[in-house]
């Protein structure tokens, strides 16, 4: 979470907490810490992460 911003799960109304989240893509697995709802498990993936490192993983793993 950035600065003083708090992320709240809209379903559970609980504040998201940083948690290790596993990713799997095309047979490869890795993890990163992400804000996650302690109640329902909903994970928040920021636009910055999607357009940055996740996009890079996609490019590295995908066939041309």
């Amino acid at each position: 979470m950035n600065g003083k911003k708090r992320l709240i799960c809209c379903k559970c109304q609980k504040e998201l907490e940083m948690k290790k989240v596993d990713f799997s893509y095309l047979g490869h697995t890795f993890f990163t810490d992400l804000p996650s709802c302690p109640e329902c498990g909903l994970v928040y993936i920021s636009e910055e992460l999607v357009k940055g490192r996740i996009s890079e993983v996609e490019m590295q793993l995908e066939d041309k």
Binding site: D22, F23, H28, T29, F30, F31, T32, R53, I54, E56, V57, Q60, L61
Partner: peptide, 15 residues
């Protein structure tokens, strides 16, 4: 399993 940054580093290095 690796964290995403290490994963990316390894993939690029070992390519």
């Amino acid at each position: 399993k690796l964290d995403i940054d290490s994963f990316l580093r390894i993939i690029k290095q070992q390519s």
